[in-house]
Design a protein around this nucleic acid. Sequence first.
DNA 1: GTGAAAGCGCTAACAT
DNA 2: ATGTTAGCGCTTTCAC
Lengths: 348, 348
Amino acid sequence: MAPTIRDIARAAGVSVATASKGLNGKGRMRPETRQRILDTARELDFRPNRNASSLTTGRTYTVGLLTRDGYGRFTPPLLGGVEDSLSVDTASLLLCDARRDAVRERHYLDVLAARRVDGLIVTGRATDPAPPLPRSLPFPVLYAYTTSSNPDDSSITVDDEHGGWLAARQLLRQGCRRIAHVTGPISVLAVRERVAGARRALAEAGLELPDELITYGPFAERTGFDAAQKLMADGKVDGIFCGSDQIGRGVADALGGLGVGIPDDVALVGFDNWTLIANATRPGLCSVDMNLYRLGRLAAESLLRAIDGNPEPGIRRLPCSLAIRASCPAPITDSTEWLDDSPLVPDA
Amino acid sequence: MAPTIRDIARAAGVSVATASKGLNGKGRMRPETRQRILDTARELDFRPNRNASSLTTGRTYTVGLLTRDGYGRFTPPLLGGVEDSLSVDTASLLLCDARRDAVRERHYLDVLAARRVDGLIVTGRATDPAPPLPRSLPFPVLYAYTTSSNPDDSSITVDDEHGGWLAARQLLRQGCRRIAHVTGPISVLAVRERVAGARRALAEAGLELPDELITYGPFAERTGFDAAQKLMADGKVDGIFCGSDQIGRGVADALGGLGVGIPDDVALVGFDNWTLIANATRPGLCSVDMNLYRLGRLAAESLLRAIDGNPEPGIRRLPCSLAIRASCPAPITDSTEWLDDSPLVPDA
DNA sequence: GTGAAAGCGCTAACAT
DNA sequence: ATGTTAGCGCTTTCAC
C-alpha cells in the first residue's frame, strides 16, 4: 500500500498535524523539522491522497470538459490551451463527450456533480449559441467556442466578424478591388458574421460585397471548386475570401485547372489556418487563424477566476489573426494580425 | 451546500448506515425502507460524493489517459472508444498531454498517482514501441496504439502488416498486376510493417514488390504527387498502394493532371480512411481503416480487466478493415474486411 | 432488518 | 514550535 501521512509522521518523529503543515508549507516550524518531514516524504515516495484532502478543503482541483459533439477538428488546440492553463493551478481535466445526446449530457452532469468538480467548460462544434445546460449546476460553468444563449452565463468565443474583416482587408491590401466570398451554410452564425466583417472591410475601402458574389454551401472542397468555376466564367473577380481552408483548397484547385494565376490574377484567403490543408494547397493558402489554443487558455483562466468567486458573465469575443502565405502575400503592417502565441500543438 | 448522506438518513428516518446500504443496493432490508431512502434521495437531489466513497472503497473509478505527443489526427476516435467503454463501468477519464516532454510526463504521473487513479492508458502518435514509463506505477498501465518495448507491459495496437496486406490484396482483386507503393518514412515501424504485408499479399499471387517500386517520404501530399509523376514516366504501373490518404490525394491529383484514369488505368488504395480527405479526392479514395474507435474500446476493456486483477501482458494487434471507394472498387468477397462497428465519431 | 461505531487519509482549530 | 482533537462524507464490520 501507498504510504499515508501517518507513515511519514511516524518516520519523521512528529505528529500527523505537524507532518501535514510541513508538507504543505503552512504554519510555523523549525526549518530543520520541515526539512526532515520533506526528506522522509521523498524517501518513502509519499504522494498525498488528493481525494482525501479535497474532502476537507472542499476543492477537488478538477475541472470537467463537456463537449457536446465529439472531438472535432477544433477541439484539440482548445484542449491543449485549457490543459496548460489548468496545470498552473495543478488542476486536472475530466473528459466528457455528450455526442449531441441529451441523455448522455445529463448523465455526465450527474457524474461531474458526484465528483464535485470545481467547474465545467462546455464546448461544441460551432460558435452558435447553444441551449444552456438543463439545470442549475453546483459549480461555475464556462462556455468556450460555443456560447450560451443565456446572457447570465459566461462564454468565450471567436470574433468571426473580426476574422472576416481581417480576411477581406488582406485581399484589399493585396490590391484586389472585386472580391467574392465562397463560404459555408448561411445557417451557421459564424458564416453570417464573417460576411458582415468582410462587408465592413470593403465598405471602409469604398467597395461592396454584393449578394451575387457570395456563394453558400457545405464546408467542403467541392463547394469551392464549383463556385470558382462559376466565378471565373461570369466576371472579373480578383480576390476570393474562402470561408474555410477546405473551400479554399477547392477554389485553388479550380483556378489552377483554369490556368488562373494565384495570387496575381486572383488572390485567395482562407479560414481556419488548418496547416495541413493550407500548406498542401498550391500556392500555400493565406488563412485566418482563430487562435483556439489561446481561446482554451483564456477560457480556463476565466473559469478559475469564477471558481474563486469572480465570475465574468457575458460573451467575450477574441480577435483572430492572419497566417500570411503565398496565395495573398501582402505584408503585415501592424502587429494585431499575428497574435499566435501557441506552442506547437498538433493541428491535424 | 449539497446534501450529504446524513441529510438523507435523517429525512428518511433511518440511520446513516442503513441509508448507505439502501442507496447502494447492499445488505438486506425491507423493500419499503429501501424505497423510502431512494425516494428521499431523489427529492433532495442527492449525489453521493465519490471522493468520499473512494476513500473507503479504495477505488476511484477514474482512469488516466496520457498522450505523449498531443491530440493528433488519431487520438479523437480512440478517445471516443475509451470513453464509451469506461462509461459502462461509470469510470471517468482524466486527460494528460505530456507533449513529448519528459518533465511533463513525470509531473502527470505524479498527479495521477496523487489522485489514485485505478489505471492508465498511454497513447502516442505512432505505433512504434515507446520507452516504458520511467518508474513502476501503483496502478496498471495499458499502451494503446503505441506499444511498450517492455514485453511484460500490455499493449494493444494496429496490425499494420494486415493493413498492408488488405490494401495490396484489394488492388490485386481489382486486377492490378504491377503494383507500386508510395509511403511514409522508412524509420516508422508501421511503414515497414505495411510494406511487409503488401509483399505477403503479392507473394500469394505470385508477384513481387521490388524495392524500386517503393517510394519513402514524408506523410504529405507532395510525396504522393512527386512519386506519381516519376512512376508514370518510368513504366507501366497499374496500381498504387499509398501509405496514407494524404499521399493518396497527392497521387490522385498527379494522375488526374496526367490524364491517367483512376481506377481503370491505375487503381489506388490509401491508408487511414480519413473521410475528409478520402471523399475530397477524385475519385473517392478506397482506404484502409485502422478501426481506432474499436481499438479505444478494447483498450479500455482490457484495462478494466487489469484493474480487476487480470492483466493481459504482451502486444495485441487488431486487424484493419477496408473502406471501398471508387479509386479501387473491387467488391468485398468476405466479411473480415469491414469490421467498422464505430458509431459516428467526428473524424476530422 | 436496522443502527452504533470505527475508520478511510487528510486538514484545521485549538491547545500546549 | 508542536501536538490533540474533531471532522470532511462515506462504507463497513458487528451488535442488537
